[in-house]
């Protein structure tokens, strides 16, 4: 029985490996074509490609999230909570989406002390950040701000934008400080939220547990996604 599970997960993993290779090449080639069209002054093609690339990135993100959730559910995800530089983590998440942001002319600012280290699973938390950036990309007007703070035994990672913010209804359902899961049927990004919430809860220190919350306002006045890690 157990053997079957492993080979099934191997099969999923290798398929995803393959799909990600294709996506990686696709995005890379599209980016190249986009740059060429920009240099030629073809802004219509440039904008179209920006949207296509955004969708490809979303697909890639969904693949990672699905695979991670599958493995977390089976207790075979190699969770690895270690001390990492928070500034580097944010930097990488931003770099991964830099071209995408450039297409839409979105400015991303970071506020994080260079000597801030925290205990976290690097890949999972980066996944949460990339997901948050993807969301913010969709809803922001033209600015995204990422902030990391050590606050009351918790690391607070905030991804804020200057869009219209979350609808009222979602704010109440999405109260991640309670143990109730977010109601995902109401939002189109259910997977991303669910994944992020799971990642938050995976982080523990003594009696403290990680949490995910959403709010409106913040430094840019739009939507804010906040990850609290103990």
């Amino acid at each position: 029985m157990a053997q079957d599970d492993i080979s099934f997960s191997d099969l999923i993993a290798s398929s995803i490996h393959d799909m990600k290779n294709s996506l990686n090449l696709q995005v890379s080639a599209l980016e190249k074509i986009a740059m060429q069209s920009r240099d030629k002054g073809d802004s219509a093609t440039f904008d179209d490609l920006g949207r296509v690339i955004y969708q490809a990135n979303r697909m890639n993100l969904n693949l990672i999230e699905l695979l991670s959730l599958y493995k977390l559910g089976k207790s075979i995800y190699p969770v690895d909570i270690n001390e990492h530089s928070v500034a580097e983590l944010i930097e990488e998440a931003v770099l991964q989406n830099q071209t995408m942001m450039d297409f839409k002319g979105i400015r991303v600012s970071i506020d994080c002390a260079p000597d801030l280290f925290w205990y976290l699973d690097r890949e999972l938390v980066k996944g949460v950040l990339v997901n948050a950036l993807n969301n913010a990309y969709l809803y922001t007007h033209d600015m995204i701000h990422i902030e990391a703070r050590h606050h009351d035994k918790l690391l607070q990672l905030r991804v804020e934008d200057n869009g219209r913010g979350y609808p009222e209804r979602l704010l109440h359902q999405g109260d991640a400080s309670s143990d109730k899961p977010v109601n995902f049927e109401s939002g189109s990004t259910g997977l991303g939220f669910y994944f992020s919430d799971q990642v938050a809860k995976l982080h523990k220190n003594g009696a403290l547990r990680g949490a995910l919350s959403i709010e409106n306002g913040g430094s840019l006045g739009g939507g804010c996604l906040v990850l609290h890690l103990p």
Binding site: I16, K20, N21, I64, S68, P78, V79, D80, E123
Partner: peptide, 9 residues
């Protein structure tokens, strides 16, 4: 790698 592997941890 395409995904986090056991070897990584």
């Amino acid at each position: 790698t395409a995904e986090k592997t056991q070897e990584m941890v």
